[in-house]
């Protein structure tokens, strides 16, 4: 494995991750760490962990970390960034954290053009609490709290976060990626790097939405989960750049 993936990035602490087998969190952690390494910014980066499966990211990233209340990572990150404008600040949030309880904080941090990066893991389910409906759960998708499938007439509709945020002035980059294959992993890393570079250039709020899997709570093997992602998630959450102010864009 190490031959294929290369050395552990310096910005990842040498401890075993707690994630389930086949979970894509590990890949995204690695991509973020590689970007921090390549930009040489670990010493001035502060990460903000959210509540959900990724709550323990503060143990994994080698940079300084703050753990935020559920949904409040954008506000906590705002506080860090305003106190330390020279630092690079990112949040790492799941779909429940960012798009349900923390939607207010997310939209307003975006509208302020807050110079932070949000790494947004969308796997259409609450992982940490054991598989309940998320704001991004697909219509008809079975979860512990939508046992008959998500009935949108009762439970409402899934939220497409990148599309929504693309309309907000203050957002510098809103891009949806996935990590189901080597080609997409490379594209995801490129997007994450761009987001960090945009922050360092003072362009504003950047969000990279990573369409992800949750084999455990979806009740599938890791391979089946990736196929389910391609067949069901990607049609509803198309990959792409939803907003990009570009090199010459708003600063």
């Amino acid at each position: 494995m190490s031959k294929i993936m290369g050395e552990r990035p310096k910005a990842l602490v040498d401890v075993p991750l707690h994630y389930c087998p086949g979970c894509t969190h590990g890949i995204v952690h690695r991509l973020v760490a590689e970007v921090i390494d390549e930009l040489g910014i670990e010493g001035k980066t502060v990460g903000v962990a959210s509540v959900g499966c990724s709550v323990f990211t503060y143990n994994y990233f080698g940079c300084d970390m703050v753990q935020a209340p559920h949904g409040r990572a954008p506000a906590v990150a705002t506080g860090v960034k305003r106190a330390r404008p020279e630092d690079v600040v990112f949040t790492y949030q799941g779909d429940g954290d960012l798009a349900a309880i923390g939607m207010g904080e997310t939209v307003h941090a975006a509208a302020r053009g807050e110079n932070i990066v949000a790494i947004f893991i969308n796997n259409a389910i609450y992982g940490m609490t054991g598989g309940q409906m998320a704001p991004t759960t697909l219509p008809g998708q079975v979860t512990q709290t939508t046992p008959y499938g998500r009935d949108t007439s009762v439970a409402g509709n899934p939220i497409r976060v990148c599309e929504l945020l693309s309309s907000v002035k203050g957002v510098a980059l809103a891009q949806r990626v996935t990590v189901d294959c080597v080609k997409n992993v490379k594209a995801a890393k490129k997007a994450i790097k761009k987001a960090f570079e945009y922050q360092m250039a003072g362009k504003g709020y950047c969000i990279i939405e990573v369409v992800s899997t949750c084999p455990t709570n979806w009740g599938m093997s890791p391979a089946d989960a990736l196929q389910w992602l391609r067949d069901n998630m990607l049609p509803y959450y198309p990959l792409g750049v939803y907003k990009d102010v570009g090199e010459e864009g708003e600063q």
Binding site: A75, T78, G79, V80, G104, E105
Partner: peptide, 26 residues
């Protein structure tokens, strides 16, 4: 200095958490 009007008290206190965690008087 920094004066920032949060979108709610909920957000404001978490900005305080962030700035305080970053080591400034807030």
């Amino acid at each position: 200095g920094v004066y920032l009007q949060g979108e709610s008290e909920v957000a404001s206190i978490n900005m305080v958490l962030g700035a305080g965690a970053a080591g400034v008087r807030v």
